[in-house]
Amino acid sequence: MRIELSVNGNAIEVDVEPTTMLVDVLRDHVALTGPRVTCGVGLCGTCTVLLDGEPVSSCILMAPLALGKQITTIEGIPRDDEVVSCFDRQHAFQCGFCIPGMVLTAKNMVEHGTATSREQIREGLGGNLCRCGCYTKIVDAIEEAAR
């Protein structure tokens, strides 16, 4: 089926099967590399994108369900964004594979005022895993962004 998606402010038409997951559309049809598949079952958050500003796991979201919504990937976040800058300043990354998902989740937390304490930030990151173990610095970065 042909569907038109709004990705990072651009209207993009793709021809996909109705069961194709959004992450595959973004990677294979839109040539974005920010959303990534690690677990494929909605647990790790490396495939996180914002759907009308809310973080979702794009590995378990069928692409047609994103119709009519604004899809934002890391590529759609300005380079001088405050959360991005805080991750950079705090050196909150190692390999970086999980980081776009972390940044998108963090943006949502900062915007909704749900990053008021380190404990709350940790709770908010429950669905974003980092095997390199950068959690301490990631929490530092989000704490700084929320100030």
Partner: peptide
């Protein structure tokens, strides 16, 4: 410049 690992400007 922002690190490429944050902005997905790295190619794994």
């Amino acid at each position: 410049m922002t690190d490429a690992r944050i902005t997905a400007d790295i190619r794994y």
